[in-house]
Amino acid sequence: MTEQRSAPEPDPPAPPAAPGTSRPGGRTARTRAAVRDAVLTGLVEHGYPGLTVEYVAEHSGIHKTTLYRRWGNLEGLLVDALDLAGEDSWAPPDTGSLEGDLRALARTTAASFEDPAAAAAPTAFIAAAFQSKCAAEALNAFYAERFARCEAIVARAVSRRELDRRTDAAALVRAVVAPLFFGLFITREPVDGALADRSADAALAAARAGSFNSPASSA
């Protein structure tokens, strides 16, 4: 007689990922991406006051009960949308000199807002941060993580003896991009490559003068 073999038991299902947890590929990643896209589209079309869980459900194809269960509420959706945006592979420029790195960083920042379609989502999220504490905290965390990545610029400059090792990378990067964001969101002036270069050059001069040296390390 032929020996009967039982079918192997299937592996237990993986536990659901908590909001903000990165998981490469798979249905969970696709769900998060669809929800993120719906949140950003809603912010662009209606702004934060007009964004609803129902809108996200309709445009993501995810039932609203699932949205409430996994993200809690609208602000949970906002936070995770920006958290997911921060899980990219962006790295600061590496041109071989501090001047080149800062100019490239400034030009990249300016260029990211040149295309109105591409700029719509980040602009809407910044606007939402003025109306939602959770969105503001998420935006702060997003840029804090970006500044942390830019520590590589300062580390390379220190190794080339272009900067004091006490230079605060976050303060330097803020100085580079601040004039650009002022023009974009305060005075609503055109932001171009020339302004980007001036912003980078001014920040570079201040850094060389020690303006961004950490006070805690100055002793």
Rank of each mutant, 00 (worst) to 15 (best):
4 Q>H: 10
5 R>W: 03
5 R>A: 08
6 S>L: 15
7 A>K: 10
10 P>W: 10
11 D>H: 05
12 P>M: 07
12 P>E: 12
12 P>Q: 10
12 P>F: 10
14 A>S: 13
16 P>I: 03
17 A>I: 04
17 A>C: 04
20 G>S: 04
21 T>A: 13
23 R>E: 11
25 G>T: 04
25 G>R: 08
27 R>Y: 01
28 T>S: 14
31 T>Q: 14
32 R>E: 08
33 A>G: 02
33 A>D: 15
40 L>I: 07
40 L>H: 14
40 L>C: 03
41 T>N: 14
42 G>W: 06
42 G>R: 08
44 V>W: 06
44 V>K: 06
46 H>A: 14
46 H>Y: 08
48 Y>V: 02
48 Y>W: 13
49 P>Q: 09
50 G>Y: 13
52 T>S: 15
55 Y>E: 05
56 V>F: 06
58 E>S: 11
59 H>T: 07
59 H>N: 13
63 H>F: 03
66 T>L: 07
66 T>A: 14
66 T>Q: 13
67 L>T: 06
67 L>M: 08
69 R>K: 13
84 L>M: 06
85 A>V: 11
85 A>H: 11
85 A>F: 01
87 E>Q: 15
87 E>A: 15
87 E>L: 14
88 D>I: 07
89 S>V: 14
90 W>Q: 07
92 P>I: 07
97 S>I: 12
98 L>Y: 12
99 E>S: 14
103 R>F: 00
104 A>V: 04
105 L>G: 05
105 L>R: 10
106 A>W: 11
106 A>K: 12
106 A>G: 11
107 R>V: 15
108 T>Y: 03
110 A>P: 05
111 A>F: 04
111 A>N: 09
112 S>Y: 05
117 A>V: 12
119 A>F: 09
120 A>V: 04
121 A>H: 12
122 P>S: 11
123 T>M: 01
123 T>Q: 06
123 T>G: 15
124 A>R: 07
125 F>R: 13
128 A>N: 02
129 A>R: 09
130 F>D: 10
131 Q>W: 02
132 S>W: 09
133 K>I: 08
134 C>H: 13
135 A>N: 08
135 A>W: 05
140 N>W: 04
145 E>M: 09
145 E>K: 13
146 R>V: 12
149 R>V: 06
149 R>A: 09
151 E>L: 01
152 A>Y: 00
152 A>R: 12
153 I>N: 00
153 I>G: 03
153 I>Y: 07
155 A>S: 10
156 R>Y: 01
158 V>M: 05
160 R>I: 00
161 R>G: 00
162 E>I: 01
162 E>M: 00
163 L>P: 02
165 R>T: 01
169 A>N: 07
169 A>V: 04
172 L>T: 02
172 L>Q: 01
172 L>I: 03
175 A>S: 15
175 A>K: 05
175 A>V: 02
176 V>F: 08
176 V>W: 05
176 V>A: 08
177 V>T: 15
180 L>A: 04
180 L>W: 10
181 F>A: 12
182 F>I: 04
182 F>G: 06
183 G>M: 04
185 F>T: 01
189 E>A: 13
190 P>Y: 04
193 G>D: 15
194 A>S: 09
197 D>A: 08
198 R>H: 11
199 S>T: 03
200 A>E: 12
200 A>G: 07
204 L>Y: 09
204 L>C: 02
206 A>I: 00
208 R>N: 00
208 R>T: 08
209 A>N: 10
210 G>H: 03
210 G>N: 03
212 F>C: 06
213 N>I: 00
217 S>W: 11
219 A>C: 00
